[in-house]
Each structure stands twice: as structure tokens, then as C-alpha cells.
């Protein structure tokens, strides 16, 4: 049996995503493993959400294969909750919701029995201090820590976050990525983050998944590898971004 570190958490082989049988993007291949922090980036309307929803199993793939490793648990932190901001609940209630998997919600005392896990997840995400506060009263940074704790409480192997730093200032954004990086190391967790803040991503991620419908590109792999793609380099150059790994980009975005 493969060591835990070597096992594949999520693998795509010639995966095509889209709607009603029509692919939006070219096929993509990649393998996510424990301890990797993947950034899913691309311009607005590039197909990031479609790819993300397909990877999560929320919409069917058009073609190719998508495999989850045996027993791999996925936790997802969406950008927004369905019901908007009016749902009442304390931070610890929001975290406890993450305990349920499959049909476990039918066990009426499961949450009561697993309170220590909720406390541990809150502490790990740096949210223990406001566990009893109403979720709605928290700052955006605090809310995001609670959401991450809610994802961690189910002991996932892959943590997926959609735009976790929207509505935050730069310090808040860095705090979230620092937290994710710490979790990646301490839990040997595979993390996939969607963000349009490419500059911030490059400071934290180990791997990139770049999509762009305009230039029909899907590039996946280690950061250096992906940054060698002309379309990716053009994207970074147009954003006025300078980074050692993205150097070599000439004016106009072409190497």
C-alpha cells in the first residue's frame, strides 16, 4: 500500500468540463497529493467555477476521468452560503455542522458526543476565542477562520475553498493564506484555493491550476512548470505582476 504522503487525493485524466456535453476548456491532467497547496486561477469568466464544481462532483464532467483516492474526504468552503447572511448561529454551531457526512445527521446525539472535535478545530483555525459569539457579528477574517474550522472538523484529506479572501483587505488575505499554509504542513492536507488574486497566490501555493477560455488553456502542475506557459505569463504580465517565478515576461505579456 502506498504511504499516505504518496497517495493521490484527486486525479484528473483528460478531464473536460462544461455544460450540456460541450467542453468549455481543453482537457486537463493533474494529480493532487497530500501536503500540496494548489491555486486555481484565471481571469474572470475563464471557467474556474465550472472546473471547481466539476472537481467537487457538483456537476457532471463532459469527458475524461476524475478519481478520488480510496476513502478520501473532501471539505468545501463556498464563497457564499445559500441562505445569505440572515441564518442565526454561533461560531461553534457553524463548525459543528461540518461534522455531518452522509447520513450521520440521523444520529441525534452525534454532535454532543463530538464536541471535543469542534473545540480542537476551532483552536486549530485560531477561532477558539470567539466560539460562542454569533457568526453574524464576526469580522470577515473571523468568519473565514470559522468556516475553515467547519471544514477541518470532518478531518478532510482535501480542503477546497472558493475565493476565501473576498471582502478582505491585504492583511486579512495574508492571514487566511498563512492559516492554509500552516494547515497544509501540520495536517499534511491537500488544499485547493480558487482566487482571482494571482499575486497573493504565488506567494503561498506549491502548485497551480490555470484556466483561460480566451486562449483555450488549462495548465496544471508545479508553479514553475505552469508559469512557463505563454498564456499564463501573459496573464501575469497584464496584471502588472512581478515575481521571481514569473520573470522573463516581456512587455505585452509574451516571453
Amino acid at each position: 500500500m502506498a504511504a499516505k504522503e504518496d497517495r493521490v487525493v484527486l486525479a484528473a485524466r483528460a478531464l473536460e468540463v462544461g455544460y450540456r456535453g460541450r467542453a468549455l476548456l481543453p482537457p486537463v491532467d493533474f494529480e493532487m497529493r497530500p501536503g500540496q497547496l494548489w491555486g486555481l486561477i484565471g481571469p474572470n469568466g475563464a471557467g474556474k467555477t465550472t472546473l471547481l464544481r466539476t472537481l467537487l462532483g457538483l456537476q457532471p464532467r463532459v469527458a475524461g476521468e476524475l478519481e478520488r483516492g480510496d476513502g478520501v474526504r473532501v471539505a468545501y468552503v463556498p464563497q457564499r452560503e445559500d441562505a445569505g447572511p440572515g441564518v442565526p448561529g454561533r461560531a461553534k454551531d457553524v463548525v459543528a455542522d461540518g461534522l455531518d457526512r452522509g447520513w450521520s445527521f440521523l444520529d441525534p446525539v452525534a454532535h454532543w458526543r463530538r464536541r471535543p472535535e469542534v473545540r480542537r478545530a476551532l483552536a486549530e483555525a485560531g477561532a477558539a476565542a470567539f466560539a460562542n459569539q454569533r457568526f453574524l457579528e464576526l469580522s470577515e477574517g473571523q468568519k473565514q477562520r470559522v468556516r475553515v474550522a467547519g471544514a477541518l472538523v470532518s478531518s478532510p484529506d482535501l480542503l477546497v475553498l472558493d475565493e476565501p479572501t473576498s471582502a478582505m483587505d491585504q492583511a486579512g488575505e495574508h492571514a487566511v493564506f498563512d492559516l492554509l499554509e500552516a494547515l497544509r504542513v501540520s495536517r499534511n492536507l491537500a488544499v485547493l484555493v480558487v482566487s482571482h488574486h494571482a499575486h497573493l497566490m504565488l506567494q503561498h501555493v506549491t502548485h497551480l491550476l490555470f484556466v483561460d477560455r480566451e486562449c483555450r488553456t488549462v495548465a496544471a502542475g508545479a508553479v514553475d512548470e505552469v508559469l512557463s506557459d505563454p498564456c499564463v505569463r501573459a496573464h501575469f504580465a497584464e496584471g502588472g505582476f512581478e515575481h521571481p517565478q514569473a520573470s522573463g515576461v516581456t512587455e505585452g505579456g509574451r516571453p
Partner: peptide
């Protein structure tokens, strides 16, 4: 009896679907 599942299906359906709730 189903209150936890029902609330998650109503208020955070995508995260719940990813965790395998019906």
C-alpha cells in the same frame, strides 16, 4: 429527527452535498 440534515440542505447545500449528505 432530520433537523441537522434539513438545515444544511436548506442553508448550505453545496458544502453538504460535497460531504455526501442526501
Amino acid at each position: 429527527w432530520t433537523v441537522r440534515g434539513m438545515a444544511q440542505a436548506a442553508f448550505s447545500s453545496e458544502a453538504a452535498r460535497v460531504r455526501g449528505l442526501p
